[in-house]
Each structure stands twice: as structure tokens, then as C-alpha cells.
């Protein structure tokens, strides 16, 4: 539990609506682009592959190993998916994984799903693809390239994604930037090592048993230079922006406040008199709470009347639905 308080799967309520909507738009754009590429580049064969791979990555996230004491390392899978099916299909695979986690298991929120897809799906995949492209140029040796690349891609995808999540939390005013960003980055620099090692082990396993799966002949065609440029820009942006932001919290606070203003959440818009924050402190506070309770009673009342109505109608209804 010690490693998870700073969430990678951000829940609803933790990002402001403006930030959530912003990342929805970015993710929709990214997914749309990936869908077009998938339709162009790869064939019908890949639909079941993507589906089963997404399920395998979901299940693979349950595989863990003890790091030390009570903490354990486990897999996110963006780098692994990228190495197996290439970046465009990997974006769809990771989008499916993150979406099901949110839609069915409440692992991450629905309103913030766009941001979670961006962090763990799009960002993780783009960075992995970039790393693999770079490493391929450095190592001529196939095996060295694959293994070195998979470790670095695994690590970087976690580390940069955590910076993004930290910044999103900070911009939303949920966590102070000078705490959120270094804490996220510090912890995930370590967690990323686990990701890197597991990715490396998995790629080694595949390389030994089915080398054709991890050494695509059409690799060069599959990952274009656009993704490298995008990866470099994102890395630089996040790697430079986050330390800058955490050492100059005022700048980010300004962003946060602007966002908060758009979000109707800016404190000064509805300056609440400090004394009546909590129940019993002030008559007006009591009145407010009272109003809330009346509202609650009304809701309950309406529901119960509806339920009673329904009970009376039930026999008749059941035949309706047959």
C-alpha cells in the first residue's frame, strides 16, 4: 500500500473539469489518429490480436514481485504492447485496458478517463516507440537492441506518465505542485525499474520462443518519424516543465487558478465566510446544513413514493415485460 497513495489511475474528483475535458480532447484526437493508422497499416488479423492482448495486459498487471518488505513491483504494459504490435495498435490496446479498468472496476474515474488514457495509453506508447526507434539506431545487434530498448522504454513510460499525472493533479489544485510532482516522480522512478525489468523479461521470453513476434520486418514502416518527434517533444516538455513548475509553484498556481475560475471552483468567486465552514460554528452554517438535509429528505420521499407506486403496479408490469 505504501507505494500506491499517489495514484496512477486518477479517480474522479481529483482533476478539475477543465483539465479533464482538455485531456479528453487530446486523447480523442490521439485515439482517432491511431484508429486511422491501424486501418491503413495493419490487417483484419489484428482485431482479435488486439482484444486478446488487451486482456493479457490486464491480467499481466496482476503479476507482481516483491521489491523489498511490503512493496511490490508490477506491470503497466504500454512498452510491452508497443514492442509487440507497434505504436498505433498499442494505443488502442492500452485505451481498452484503461477504459475497462475505469468502466467496470472503478480503477480510475470516468470523467478523468481521458487523462488516464493519455498518461498510461498515449504517452506511454509514444515514449516507448520513440525509445525503440532511438535504440535501434544505436545497437545493430537485434537482441541487445530489443532488451536494452525494452528496459528503457518500460522505465521511461512509467516515469514520464507519472510526471504528467503529477502535473495534472497540481494544475487541478488537488495536490500542491511542490509535493505532487517530486513525490510522483521519485516514487515512479523506482517503480519504473520494476516495469523495465518485467518488460525486459517478457520480451526476452518472446524473443527466445517466438522471435517473429518481437522483430517485425516492417518496423521502419510501422513507426514513423512523427512519433519520434512527438515523443521527444512530450519528454522534453514534461521533463523540463515539471521541475520548473515545482520550483516555481506560483506560476502553476496561476494556471490552476485560471483553470479553477473556468471551473466555477475559484474560492474567491464564492468567498465563504471562514467561521461557517463547519457544522455548529455559526447559525448560517446550521441553516445551510438544514437546507441540505431537507433536500435529502425530499429526494428520499420522492423515491419511496415511486417505489410504492411500482409495487402496486408490479403484477401488471411483469406481464408487460414478458
Amino acid at each position: 500500500m505504501l507505494l500506491s497513495p499517489l495514484p496512477m489511475h486518477i479517480p474522479d474528483g481529483f482533476l478539475s473539469v477543465v483539465v479533464s475535458v482538455f485531456f479528453w480532447l487530446i486523447s480523442i484526437g490521439g485515439i482517432g489518429f491511431a484508429l486511422r493508422k491501424v486501418n491503413q497499416v495493419i490487417g483484419e488479423r489484428e482485431v482479435p490480436l488486439m482484444g486478446v492482448l488487451a486482456a493479457a495486459i490486464f491480467a499481466g498487471q496482476m503479476l507482481n514481485f516483491t521489491v523489498t518488505g511490503g512493496t511490490s513491483g508490477h506491470l503497466m504494459g504500454a512498452a510491452l504492447a508497443t514492442i509487440i504490435v507497434g505504436p498505433w495498435a498499442a494505443i488502442l490496446v492500452m485505451t481498452s485496458v484503461v477504459s475497462i479498468q475505469a468502466l467496470v472496476f472503478q480503477d480510475g474515474g470516468l470523467l478523468v478517463l481521458g487523462a488516464n488514457i493519455f498518461n498510461m495509453g498515449i504517452l506511454g506508447v509514444v515514449l516507448s516507440a520513440m525509445v525503440m526507434q532511438f535504440i535501434r539506431k544505436i545497437f545493430q545487434n537485434r537482441k541487445k537492441y530489443l532488451l536494452g530498448g525494452s528496459f528503457i522504454a518500460g522505465w521511461l513510460s512509467i516515469f514520464i506518465a507519472s510526471l504528467a499525472a503529477g502535473l495534472e493533479l497540481a494544475i487541478s489544485g488537488t495536490s500542491p505542485v511542490q509535493i505532487a510532482v517530486p513525490a510522483m516522480a521519485g516514487i515512479h522512478a523506482l517503480i519504473g525499474i520494476g516495469e523495465g525489468l518485467i518488460t525486459l523479461g517478457a520480451v526476452l521470453f518472446l524473443y527466445i520462443n517466438r522471435p517473429d513476434l518481437v522483430t517485425h520486418p516492417n518496423e521502419a514502416k510501422n513507426a514513423n518519424s512523427g512519433i519520434v518527434v512527438a515523443g521527444v517533444i512530450l519528454t522534453v516538455l514534461l521533463a523540463v516543465l515539471s521541475p520548473l513548475a515545482s520550483s516555481h509553484p506560483d506560476g502553476l498556481e496561476w494556471v490552476a487558478e485560471t483553470a479553477a475560475f473556468l471551473n466555477f471552483a475559484k474560492e474567491s468567486t464564492y468567498q465563504i465566510i471562514p467561521d461557517y465552514l463547519l457544522p455548529g460554528l455559526h447559525n448560517e452554517a446550521v441553516a445551510t446544513i438544514f437546507a441540505g438535509l431537507i433536500g435529502a429528505v425530499i429526494v428520499f420521499g420522492v423515491i419511496f413514493v415511486m417505489m410504492n407506486q411500482r409495487k402496486k403496479q408490479l403484477p401488471q408490469r411483469e406481464t408487460d415485460f414478458e
Partner: peptide, 22 residues
């Protein structure tokens, strides 16, 4: 590192079986 590598193998095993299933 050995524990992490074994976990990686397990992930690879799971992936390979699922790819063949697909």
C-alpha cells in the same frame, strides 16, 4: 533483479499463450 526477471518471463508466457489463442 532475478525475481523481476522471472515475473517478466511469466508475463511473456501469458502473452505468448494469449497471442496463440488469438
Amino acid at each position: 533483479i532475478w525475481r523481476a526477471q522471472v515475473t517478466g518471463y511469466m508475463a511473456g508466457n501469458l502473452l505468448l499463450r494469449s497471442i496463440e489463442r488469438s
